[in-house]
């Protein structure tokens, strides 16, 4: 696994750049990750998504899909597209320090 430096600290990532170690992530790092992909500021709504994803991953062992974030997390799909433009499933996972969702829907 490659390591890379984000926000002045070394973290482990996969070949694409997604974090591979759940515990290397914290809120400060999330801000850096978001800035890396063109999200300049994390709003309260962003944090709602991130917090749900982190907790759900811990329970389920896999990253929630958009459908799950809306059906279980109660965050409307439409707003996910506003918060993480164009490719919400991948972008939200990246900022939350999780792998891409494996499920199809």
């Amino acid at each position: 696994m490659p390591a890379t430096t984000i926000g002045g600290r070394e973290v482990h990532v996969d070949d694409e750049g997604f974090l591979t170690e759940y515990d290397e992530w914290d809120e400060d790092l999330a801000k850096e990750l978001a800035a890396n992909i063109g999200i300049p500021e994390l709003t309260e709504d962003h944090w709602k998504v991130i917090t749900f994803l982190r907790a759900d991953y811990k329970e389920q062992g896999e990253t929630a899909t958009l459908r799950r974030v809306s059906a279980v997390g109660g965050i409307p799909t439409k707003s996910l597209f506003q918060l993480f433009p164009k490719k919400p499933a991948r972008k939200m996972s990246y900022v939350a320090g999780l792998p891409k969702p494996a499920g199809c829907i």
Partner: peptide
Amino acid sequence: MTDAPIVPDFGDD
């Protein structure tokens, strides 16, 4: 270890 951080390419461009 590389200088520039490894960031996924989301193909936005």
